[in-house]
């Protein structure tokens, strides 16, 4: 087992800023959203609604920049799902990690997501987040439903979809945060998302299927 470590520049400046901005936005949305949902009283309902609306719209706009970035830089290829080695990655997190086995698909510049990440991030970035933004936007525009011909919608259903997706997102965040501790050291992944530089094992070659032509 090779232990030669090599630092690679994995996340660009935009990517890192976007990640932490999104962290801030989603945290604010989660805290205020659950208050609007009536889970607790923290900022006060009125302030929670105002912040939630403002942050929600901010998220929607900044997400458009992210989509632009993903498409124009070709980074979208990092999100192409695959089943290859998916199960060995799953097996690693369920079993091998306890035995100190090496990661079956460590991150590389050309392929920063392992198959499990590809699948998860594709689901989150392409389905969960847009669906949450869309349901939130529709919820927010309740008073325009008449004018927009959306009267067939029910506020209750829209609100419940939005709430359900929020719970899904909350569960994702819990696991996502934990997974950051599974790097070479506990804070390795987080450090990488701050500095851009990740420590990876040097020896393993990038396989052809991972390159995504």
């Amino acid at each position: 087992m090779s232990k030669t470590m090599k630092a690679i520049y994995l996340y660009t400046r935009y990517e890192r800023s976007w990640h932490w901005l999104q962290l801030a936005l989603i945290s604010l949305l989660m805290v205020t959203g659950l208050e609007v949902h009536g889970a607790y009283a923290l900022l006060g309902f009125e302030r929670a609604v105002k912040i939630h609306n403002l942050v929600g719209i901010t998220w929607l706009i900044s997400f458009a920049f992210f989509v632009f970035w993903v498409l124009t830089t070709g980074e979208w290829k990092q999100y192409i799902p695959t089943t290859k080695k998916l199960f060995s990655v799953a097996r690693y997190y369920a079993y091998g990690i306890f035995l100190g086995e090496p990661h079956p698909v460590p991150a590389r510049k050309e392929s920063k997501h392992n198959p499990l990440q590809r699948l998860t991030y594709l689901g989150v970035a392409a389905i969960l987040l847009p669906a949450q933004m869309l349901s939130g936007f529709i919820y927010w525009s309740y008073n325009s439903w008449d004018a927009w011909g959306l009267n067939f919608l029910s506020l209750g259903i829209v609100a419940m979809v939005h709430t359900a997706l929020a719970f899904a997102l909350l569960s994702f965040v819990i696991i996502h945060v934990y997974m950051t501790t599974t790097g070479h050291t506990v804070f390795d992944h987080i450090k990488a998302m701050i500095t851009g530089w990740e420590n990876v094992e040097e020896t393993i070659a990038i396989e052809e299927w991972e390159k995504g032509k």
Binding site: G38, F45, S154, M160, T163, F167, L170, S171, I174, I175
Partner: peptide, 28 residues
């Protein structure tokens, strides 16, 4: 007879939602 934010909720949805989040927490 109408949904009012902050007042109304689906008990089933809240139960399952918090349940899944807690299960994730317990799992990690």
């Amino acid at each position: 007879g109408f949904y009012m934010p902050g007042r109304d909720r689906s008990d089933l949805l809240d139960f399952s939602g918090w349940g899944i989040a807690l299960a994730a927490l317990a799992g990690i």
